[in-house]
Design a protein around this nucleic acid. Structure first.
Lengths: 248, 248
DNA sequence: CAGTGGTCTAGACCACCTT
DNA sequence: AGGTGGTCTAGACCACTGA
């Protein structure tokens, strides 16, 4: 048993930073179970030595894992892989991506698509000048051929030039944004509940007054620019939010 | 104009790490508006020089701010304070703390309090052996003398020895846990909605069938031990969740 | 081109935990 | 006492940005 260093290879000529190569390798070992929950990693000095890295670089790699909540470090003790149940992802996800992952065959109907000056409250949510142009969409999302969510989205017109209703019907908003090179980084969400209006009930195939989950979200890119504001309602009997929080 | 370094003092004899002293100082300057949104920080080399620190230490301080989403860094450009609206807190909060902060005068009525072997699904949620002892509580939370939430909580008996119903009535669960030296770090939450049962409607002063927000949460401490499982319902017309997500 | 942050090294001392 | 992670230093080279 010479530890786990032998399972990690690093490429000094890769453009990928060394610490990142090591971090993703370790992540894979943990996810795949070759570093089981509760097991102890080699010390950072040993790992650095075996991989031919300096200790600060090795520390940077492990710090990434700590940040993701994959491992726990204790001075004088060592570095331990945390219990698997704690390893839920903390992600900025889209409904479409979620459904795809869960293999619930999403389908999208684009009910409205237009470019027009932003109404007051939308301009505020996106931190735009009043009257700036925004793309406005209204979509109905199905999962397994049952209606699941009614989604209203607003984007500054400059964010996704050339966006079409057809694209949105096929790809999901966040997917489209990624192809436009937009990287979302922070999202502020408000989650609540209320009774369905008559129109919502009809579109979602629910009875009038049925409980709906509501979510408003503003998403920002890496530079802090507001990219998207969404106001959505979900059938409460078919959807719920999972959120993981990490204290800082 | 000699930059912001003159506004920061560091104490080399303090047990608080230098990078942390600098990070919190910068945080204060940003929160207080003395470093306004959009303004550029001095370069890390300059700051390190003026504060008498090495560059890696200065980097570590700024990295903290990046991690919190307070500033954005671009190679070749510099470090900028992000737009204030993006600076929502990402926190592991308790309802009681939230209400206190919002000055909505919370009050708690303890409806049940006991220690007993855990039911199957609670044992699973807390990763305990079936039949292990858990503290079980049921509480009704008021804000401004109106009922707001009905909360069921379950804690491994060892977590908070000597916990009493009286304490819970006065202090809020998370507050009590802090006095027991418990530091929560990760929480997995599921947020949904459904109609109120007759009993829930009566306790919460709602009509039967009114929409309720529901939340189940398992919270873990820094070592990955499950500390608390809660299953709560909230009046949808008086409460909503705010969540901030940061992509990694 | 000059200036910025991103990465990396090879050491050092310390606080904390286990034995 | 011995080993662990936590902090800190003083350099170095590189990639990217902007004028």
């Amino acid at each position: 048993m010479d530890g786990i260093a032998s399972l990690i290879t690093i490429d000094r000529f890769s453009p990928v930073p060394l610490y990142f190569q090591v971090a993703t390798s370790l992540e894979d070992l943990i996810e795949s179970g070759r570093l089981p929950a509760g097991s102890r990693l080699d010390t950072e000095v040993m790992l650095a030595d075996r991989l031919g890295l300096s200790r600060p670089t090795m520390r940077q790699a492990i710090a990434h894992l700590v940040d993701k909540g994959l491992v726990v470090r204790k001075r004088g003790v060592g570095t331990q892989v945390v219990h698997s149940a704690v390893r839920r992802k903390v992600e900025l996800t889209s409904l479409n991506d979620d459904l795809r992952r869960a293999q619930r065959s999403p389908r999208t109907e684009v009910l409205a698509f237009s470019v027009a000056p932003a109404p007051e409250h939308i301009a505020v949510a996106l931190h735009l000048e009043p009257g700036a142009d925004v793309i406005t969409t209204q979509r109905l999302r199905y999962a397994e051929d049952e209606p699941l969510a009614l989604m209203h989205n607003y984007l500054p017109a400059g964010v996704a030039p050339g966006l079409t209703a057809e694209q949105l019907g096929e790809q999901g908003l966040y997917q489209v944004l990624r192809t436009h090179g937009v990287q979302l980084r922070i999202a502020d969400q408000t989650i609540g509940a209320r009774r369905a209006t008559a129109a919502e009930a009809r579109l979602l195939g629910e009875s009038r007054g049925a409980p709906l989950l509501t979510m408003q979200r503003t998403a920002y890119d890496h530079a802090g620019r507001a990219i998207e504001y969404g106001s959505h309602v979900y059938r409460a009997d078919r959807y719920s939010f999972e959120v993981s929080l990490v204290a800082r």
